[in-house]
Nucleic acid binder design. Structure first.
Length: 488
RNA sequence: CGGGGCGUGGCGCAGUCCGGUUAGCGCACCUGUUUUGGGAACAGGGGGCCGCAGGUUCGAAUCCUGCCGCCCCGACCA
């Protein structure tokens, strides 16, 4: 009823949970670590999915679907891959239930044991590369550019709504190429697609970079990542694109004949983003009043609220405006629910992060104006009815841009440089955020810093000019700066 | 897996220490009236195997035993 959202600065984790629940995005379910994504949350996911799907298709990819289950033996074919995923897999061991002879309910039928256990996919490289063996014979079959939208399961020890759930929705692209160069270009291209989506649609600035060896995807030779900074100063890995070399081709014996009739192993990439992005979206923009959505991803971009007493003049204007905005691809809801008063609706719409609210009352109509409130700044202004549809479109663009600029400013203010370890620890504990620092390039130093501070190297940023210096921890020579942060 | 917390109408909780009438409150819901420019008021009403299973007792939401589940914090990960 009254604002039940825990203030951000009081308890950020609780604030996040309150937003997810009160805005109606998702709920915990009867299954540990698995969430119910509610209609409003799913509508946001659909908007993300539609845009990403478009971008994948524009870059030449096709959708397909592979099985939920993976034979256990497949997972062990690639040594690093099994090492990375085996600990967190759900396993199917039987295929039938039966009534317990003692009458106490239903039990697993012991006679229905599977010959080979099935793994519920934690990711699909293995089943897909097993399939690719049949699909790829010639250089003419390449490149093979496939994406799948799916659910996967990783039996995480600790879960958080959207950010880390045992089951989650995602897309996983799996491509096969004739040359290393082409596969690397693909992996980089998809990193850029993700970055473009994050920045232009989510209004979430990201750093493009590569992972260090220890943070790399299990089975990858290079992991390209986009890293975002959340409001509490922690980093979020928002999307990754992997150059897999020939590791999976070797494990699943996927070879092709080149133009010279010579047999070669295929080069691979894989890349994915998940419903975690919704968590990132929340923690980039939202405030103590509730969710804040960038217009491009808001299921409802504009809500029109009649100020009682509602009458035909108000209805007419609302309907005219709705039509005009619809013609321009803007989603509008005219809230004619007479049971709730305006104040209640205002608060609910703010909670749900609807970017623009238009209030139409008789007083305003007479003056030829309406009240327009923007969610990002929570400011209100009177706008002339004349040309309103155009004004609203401009306003939506403004909000989209403003959210992105604000997030960039926040990141700038919360990015520090450090060249000695004491200072590094102080910044990390007092301020958080991204810390640029020199690193000597060794996994030992990386690990020591992680043990002492919980900060990890989020990435080695792309396109960085060489800037030799001394490692923040060891003092040894360093060829360039990397980004450290505590991460989700 | 360790630490903490919690299971009581749809949601949030009180009651449990110290057993005792019909298990209570706020929100939500239903009906009606008056309202309506930032979360309306009044009146009436409906809805509960008190997580599950045993036990103690004349009597258990409350005491005892066992089990189950979920959440939060940490280590692991998108």
């Amino acid at each position: 009823m009254s604002n039940a959202i825990t203030p951000k600065n009081e308890n950020y984790a609780q604030w996040y949970i309150d937003i997810v629940k009160r805005a109606g995005l998702a709920d915990n379910s009867a299954v540990r670590g698995c969430m119910v994504i509610k209609p409003y949350g799913f509508a946001i996911w659909e908007k993300m999915k539609n845009q990403l799907d478009l971008m994948f298709k524009e870059t030449g990819h096709q959708n397909a679907y592979f099985p939920l289950f993976i034979p256990k033996s497949f997972l062990s074919r690639e040594a690093e891959h099994v090492e990375g995923f085996a600990k967190e897999c759900a396993v199917v061991t039987h295929h039938r239930l039966m009534n317990n002879p003692d009458g106490s309910g239903i039990i697993v039928d012991p006679s229905a044991k599977l010959e080979e256990e099935l793994i519920v996919r934690p990711t699909s490289e293995t089943i897909i590369w097993h399939t690719y063996k049949d699909w790829i014979k010639s250089y003419r079959d390449l490149p093979l550019l496939i994406n799948q939208w799916a659910n996967v399961v990783r039996w995480e020890m600790r879960t958080r709504l959207f950010l880390r759930t045992a089951e989650f929705l995602w897309q996983e692209g799996h491509t096969a190429h004739a040359t290393q160069k082409e596969a690397e270009a693909e992996a980089k291209q998809m990193q850029e697609v993700y970055a473009t989506f994050a920045e232009q649609h989510m209004a979430m600035p990201v750093i493009r970079g590569v992972k260090t060896a220890s943070e790399r995807f299990a089975g990858a030779e290079e992991t390209y990542t986009i890293e975002a900074l959340m409001q509490d100063g922690k980093a979020l890995q928002a999307g990754t694109s992997h150059f897999l070399g020939q590791n999976f081709a070797r494990a699943f014996d996927v070879k092709f004949l080149n133009e010279n009739n010579k047999e070669e192993l295929v080069w691979a990439t894989s890349w994915g983003v998940s419903t975690r992005l919704i968590g990132g979206l929340i923690m980039t923009h939202s405030d103590d009043q509730g969710l804040v959505l960038p217009p491009k991803l808001a299921p409802i971009q504009v809500v029109i609220i009649p100020i009682p007493k509602r009458n035909s003049a108000i209805d007419e204007l609302a309907e005219k405006l709705t039509k005009e905005l619809h013609l321009n691809g803007i989603s509008v809801q005219y809230d004619t629910d007479e049971k709730q008063r305006p104040g209640y609706k205002f608060a609910e719409n703010e909670l749900k992060g609807i970017p623009v609210r238009i209030g139409i009352g008789n007083r305003d109509l007479e003056a030829g104006k309406v009240e327009v409130a923007r969610r990002d700044t929570t400011s209100k202004s009177m706008m002339p009815i004349e040309g309103l549809a155009k004004s609203i479109q401009n306003l939506l663009n403004d909000i989209q841009n403003n959210l992105f600029e604000s997030a960039k400013n926040f990141r700038k203010e919360n990015t520090s440089y450090s060249d000695n370890f004491d200072d590094f620890k102080d910044v990390l504990n007092q301020k958080g955020g991204f810390i640029e620092a020199h690193w000597d390039g060794t996994p030992e130093t990386e690990n020591e810093i992680k043990l002492k501070t919980k900060a990890t190297i989020r990435c080695i940023p792309n396109n960085q000019e060489k800037s030799p210096g001394k490692c923040v921890y060891s003092g040894k020579p360093s060829m360039g700066k990397v980004i450290f942060a505590k991460a989700y």
